[in-house]
């Protein structure tokens, strides 16, 4: 089963993402910031990582940079959840190694379409 890691400091967003993905039949783990996510990613191989950008402790951009350093996550699709659809944040994310982004606000269907787009 496809394993997805959902990272967001806002629990309502995280719950919505998790619930949506779970009901589409994915296996989902949650993390509330970059640090937690990095720990989780080290102990388990995820097929897709979906992360918020603005988070305490470690933000999404730093998380992506760190993930790309790990051999297991060299090619793993990593999606950024962002309200900042301006070039700045997007390209910052891209430079860090993010695969793509989902612009907030999004609805569950948009989320699923985007996730399916990056899956093997």
């Amino acid at each position: 089963m496809t394993k997805i890691l959902a990272v967001d400091d806002s629990s309502s967003m995280r719950q919505m993402v998790t619930f949506t993905l779970k009901s589409a039949g994915f296996d989902v783990d949650e993390a509330s910031d970059g640090q937690e996510a990095l720990q989780a990613a080290k102990s388990c191989k995820y097929d897709v990582v979906i992360s918020d950008v603005n988070m305490p402790n470690m933000d999404g951009i730093t998380l992506v940079k760190n993930l790309r350093q790990l051999p297991d996550y060299k090619f793993t699709p990593i999606l950024m959840l962002t309200t900042e659809s301006t070039g700045d944040k997007k390209s910052e994310g891209k430079q860090a190694g993010a695969t793509g982004w989902i612009v907030k606000p999004f609805n569950p269907d948009q989320l699923l379409t985007t996730v399916k787009r990056v899956m093997g």
Partner: peptide, 23 residues
């Protein structure tokens, strides 16, 4: 940054959950 993050989260959430006034 902390203040920004809080406002940012509220904005993102309220837009997603369709609370347009708040958003």
């Amino acid at each position: 940054n902390t203040i920004f993050r809080a406002a940012h989260s509220i904005k993102g959430g309220s837009a997603t959950f369709k609370f347009d006034e708040v958003a």
